[in-house]
Write a protein that binds this DNA or RNA. Structure first.
Lengths: 221, 221
DNA sequence: GTCAATCATCATGTATACAAGATTGATGTT
DNA sequence: AACATCAATCTTGTATACATGATGATTGAC
């Protein structure tokens, strides 16, 4: 009754391919053959092309005219840049959240934080809970556009984050940082929240780009 | 020799339609008929659809399944949110620029500022020079991804900025603010630059959303 | 034996054809 | 006269056909 969900095939395809990229089933640099994808999903090339075009616009795939589409691969420099921006956007969301957060939102945030704590021994589940936690901050910022930008970047960076999920001790550190962030949001210390989040994200960016710099030597396209 | 520029038709179309939207030739809410566009550009519907899809992903047009595409229209709230994010991204670019700017880049910035000064009596030309000025800051941030995000947002907000180009006294105020920004970048006062840019952008956002709130009463869809 | 050029094959880009849902106008009813 | 229902038309979504440029293999020359 609400959304009849006509959901054109191309939308479903976009979501499906995006999921595979983000989940790491399709690796950076990998070729995305239109005909093959069309066959695999049992549709014609037309909706496949539409899906690839959309993914290209959002940056997940790269289309080289007349030479086909590949899963976009980020250089370590670019990855670092993206984390630098992500850190700032998160900091902004946190600063706004400290000012604008509602009672319901801070409850959701606390719940998400608790979920992280409950999954401190399973890095995959912690990672999922961690995303929810950060999205709770975006939502509490009261700026829907900012929240969208944050989620989009979070999503684009996900395949790279997964690479270093299991770094020793990172989970405990992350959880402790979350703790401080929640506390500062509760007390409305905007600048403090911003600074905590900036550090929280940036440290990942630095580690990830180190990691990817190493990986790049292997799978260089 | 560099780019053989095969430039598929769909890319040219995307650029053409995007330009018309950004320039204000196509107004928010206006219907984008695929057949009509195809006829106008003397191509088939296929590349038109690809172009519209890309524009939808970047947010300039809205595609309602089975119901066609329209030029995306932003609510005053959303517009305010976008300016809020823009202000923060610009502030970030400025802060980084104050730390990282090269001699050549500060020269380019000074030139762009001078160009603004030379066009202080022509709001259209001032506006163009103003964009160049801000892009010089993005470039000087040393973060290419950030620069891209800023340019994308600048572009998306352009049609709304044009609405109030001629507000009395704004040009002179803007130019004076630029002056202070350049000075602070020269002396490397990152936080000062950030604060100046935040205010410089935000004041526009507030004005624009007021303006659009007024307009919304007329052309409500 | 190696390298280069040419040709065959294949994937992409565009056009056209077909299917299906949405919009609009007309017609009939209350 | 106003409203609802139904049909005709139009537009979008998908499939298929065709054109063109890229890739790669084969053949010939050095």
């Amino acid at each position: 009754m609400f959304d009849a969900a006509p959901t054109p095939i191309s939308r479903k395809l976009r979501a499906a391919i995006e999921d595979e990229i983000v989940a790491g089933a399709l690796l950076p640099g990998e070729r995305l053959d239109e005909t093959a994808l069309a066959a695999r999903f049992a549709v014609s090339r037309t909706p496949v092309r539409e899906a690839l075009n959309q993914l290209a616009t959002s940056g997940l795939v790269e289309i080289r005219p007349r030479r086909g589409a590949i899963v976009a691969s980020l250089t370590p420099e670019r990855l670092y840049e993206m984390f630098e921006v992500m850190a700032e956007l998160e900091a902004m969301a946190g600063r706004l959240a400290a000012r604008r957060v509602s009672a319901a939102e801070i409850e959701a945030l606390a719940d998400a934080h608790a979920a992280c704590g409950a999954n401190r021994d399973d890095s995959d589940r912690y990672y999922a809970a961690n995303e929810t936690f950060h999205q709770a901050i975006y939502a509490a910022s009261g700026n829907a556009f900012l929240a969208e930008q944050c989620r989009a970047l979070q999503r684009r960076l996900r395949p790279y984050r997964r690479l270093q999920l299991r770094v020793r001790g990172r989970l405990a550190t992350s959880f402790a940082e979350h703790e401080a962030i929640v506390a500062a949001i509760r007390t409305g210390e905007g600048e403090q929240v911003a600074e905590l989040l900036r550090a929280h994200i940036r440290v990942q960016g630095e580690r990830f780009s180190d990691l990817v710099a190493g990986l790049a030597r292997l799978g260089a396209a």
